[in-house]
């Protein structure tokens, strides 16, 4: 099937089988390997991407279902060498240990802060509930989201 997806701002065409998952299209055909395959059943959030701005799980999305839509991945955030304020905040707060869950956390955080620029700790924890960190770095991750919110408010 011919489909067209705008990935990180660039329109791209693909010829895919209907059973192709968006995650595998991103990773295997575009080499956008920042988006991770974690559990494959929608429990860990490592494959989180933004579909028309909303965080969804690429491991449970058919590529054909993204036809005509916009997909944003972790690779689309930085501009050249300049990191996104959310990426900066994760570095500043040491919210990265092994790093496997980080792209998912950052994409979910992008969506959270777009909806709610000043979330409370409770709201952060609720929104990030679907992203698991097995290094258990949640305290620093929550701090990083708070700092990202501050950084973004300062930029504006």
């Amino acid at each position: 099937m011919r489909i067209e997806i705008t990935i990180n701002g660039r329109k791209r065409q693909f010829d895919v089988e209907p059973n192709k998952l968006l995650l595998n299209l991103l990773r295997d055909e575009l080499y956008l390997t920042g988006t991770k395959y974690g559990c494959g059943i929608g429990e860990c959030g490592a494959c989180t991407v933004l579909l028309d701005g909303a965080p969804v799980l690429a491991c449970l999305t058919l590529a054909v279902d993204a036809d005509g839509r916009r997909v944003d991945t972790i690779e689309g955030l930085a501009e050249g060498e300049k990191l996104d304020p959310v990426q900066e905040a994760f570095l500043e707060e040491g919210a990265v240990q092994c790093g496997f869950c980080t792209p998912g956390f950052i994409m979910t955080t992008k969506a959270l802060l777009a909806e709610n620029p000043d979330p409370s700790e409770e709201e952060i924890r609720e929104y990030l509930k679907g992203n698991l960190c097995r290094c258990t770095g949640y305290v620093n991750i929550v701090k990083a989201v708070k700092r990202a919110a501050e950084n973004l408010r300062r930029v504006k």
Binding site: P18, N19, N24, G40, I41, C59, V64
Partner: peptide, 17 residues
């Protein structure tokens, strides 16, 4: 529980929209 390969959808199907 996650006891199979959940990397792919192993079977082919015809897609209708």
């Amino acid at each position: 529980i996650n006891r199979q390969n959940t990397h792919i959808i192993p079977t082919r199907f015809e897609y209708h929209a």
